[in-house]
Amino acid sequence: MTGRDAVREHVAEVLGQPAGSLDDHEDLLDRGVDSIRLMHLVERLRESGVDAEFVDLAETPTIAAWADLAGRRARA
């Protein structure tokens, strides 16, 4: 469960905005992702089996980049 759709769901919930309104390539910092929300996202991704790191998400704040990362960091 780590494709773009899954990541988009997590982001939508943390932001309290509909998933359909989020573009895969837009900068999520412009959509209101701040440090605390990012920490929540890290914990959610970890719960779903991805070794996500705060700094990685912070450096490239788009759904596309996070989905790539989630694919690479998924625990077997």
Binding site: D34, S35, I36, L38, M39, A58
Partner: peptide, 12 residues
Amino acid sequence: FAVSPRLAGPSS
């Protein structure tokens, strides 16, 4: 404290 200049929020 902030990882990048644009990442705002209380932890920064």
